[in-house]
Each structure stands twice: as C-alpha cells, then as structure tokens.
C-alpha cells in the first residue's frame, strides 16, 4: 500500500461520510442526484461481488462491505426518509445511456469472458461516468451547498489520487491495469471543470456558483 492509495481511499470514505452527514443534519436531499447515487450502488455491487469468494486482505474486505452497505443506506435515505419531488424534477440525466454504454464497452474490453470479469469491467466504465447526473444537476441549478461540493470534491480526489498510485505500482511492482487506468483518467477528466470552480470559489471561502 502506498501513500496515494491510502489517501485516495480515505478521501473516498470521507466523501461518503460528508454525504450522509449532510443528508441527516439538514434532513434534506436537495441538490443531490439520486441517479448518481443509484449508479454508485450498482458500481459497488457489480465490482465487489467478489467479496464473497475472493480474499485479498481484511482491509479490502472491510472496505468493500462498507462501500456496498453505505451506498445502499444512502439510497434508502434518499428514497424513503427525505424524498422530495422538486429534487426529482432536476435529476433528469438519462442514465440508461450510461448503463447501456458501460455494458457494451465492458463486453468489448473485458479481460476475460467470465461473469465476474465482465461485471468488473462494467463497474469501471460505469464508475467513470457515474458522477455525470450530479454534475448535470449542478449545471442546471448553477449553485450548490458547500457540503455538496465538499462531497463531490472528495469523491473526485479519490480517483485523482489513484493515478499517481498506478504510476507508483507500475514502477514498483510492474503492475498495470489498463482498464482501471483508462477509466480512472476519464473519470478524473470529467471532474476537471468542477475542480476548477471548487478551487476558485469554495477553497477561497465563496459559495459554489457557476458563471
């Protein structure tokens, strides 16, 4: 484990705690895309199915269970506890294209035609675009609560930190996971506009507002 990977995973955990904190403190899911959360649940379930039969380490085991459970909990909070219709109105990104596109790409680029490998590839492609409904919603409203932006930033930082981790592992271990690296870079690029606004506004103590 190198420092980039640890920092990335901590950032990922932080993003989830920020989101749950925001929802429970404000008792509202305003500004949060249910569709993005639904996609993350699908990502975690399809990718971490192997938790039931592949042992890597206690760390990986615990993290996988946490990510599956917390994403389902967020879905539950958004659907059953604090659901409002005005949020649904703004959450209009057509995710069926993301799901279908990820499915096709997974079938083309999977390392091996086994169910778990195809699902793994699918989860990578889907994760790379899962934030799009959230960013689309942000675009439509033009502004966001500071906590929401911290959440998106921490989530983006997680994938950004995995890039130096892959460099490190390539040189230290000769390990190179083409699919993970490609989709990880795509995902980080999708965040780049957001990072820019976050850096220029939120980190300077201003509200997140799009020009």
């Amino acid at each position: 484990m190198n420092v980039f990977r640890i920092a990335g995973d901590i950032s990922h955990l932080a993003s989830i705690f920020i989101l749950i904190h925001q929802i429970t403190i404000t008792k509202s899911v305003q500004g949060i895309s249910f569709k993005t959360q639904l996609l993350y649940s699908i990502v975690f379930i399809t990718r971490y199915l192997d938790v039931t039969f592949r042992w890597v380490s206690l760390y990986i085991f615990a993290m996988k269970l946490f990510f599956i459970a917390s994403s389902l909990y967020i879905i539950f909070l958004m659907r059953n506890r604090f659901r409002t219709s005005e949020v649904t109105k703004l959450d209009t990104f057509p995710i069926v294209y993301l799901l279908a596109g990820s499915g096709v790409l997974a079938l083309i680029f999977t390392y091996d035609y086994s169910i778990t490998e195809v699902l793994w590839a699918f989860s990578l492609f889907l994760e790379s675009v899962a934030i799009l409904p959230q960013l689309f919603m942000l675009q439509r409203t033009g502004q966001a609560k500071t906590l929401t932006t911290h959440y998106i930033f921490a989530l983006g930082l997680y994938r950004a930190l995995y890039i130096p981790n892959w460099f490190y592992r390539y040189f230290a271990e000769g390990r190179f996971d083409t699919l993970a690296v490609f989709t990880g870079i795509v995902q980080t690029l999708i965040y780049s506009d957001f990072f820019w606004v976050y850096y220029n506004r939120v980190m300077k103590g201003l509200n997140f507002e799009l020009p």
Binding site: R5, D9, H12, D50, R54, V56, S57, I60, M63, K64, F67, Y111, W120, Y162, N165, R175, F176, D177, T178, L179, A180
Partner: peptide, 10 residues
Amino acid sequence: DANNVIHDEL
C-alpha cells in the same frame, strides 16, 4: 499477460 491483474484495489 500484462492485463491479467489481481483485483486488489477498490
């Protein structure tokens, strides 16, 4: 095979 990697990341 360079792509035959163990899935040991999150």
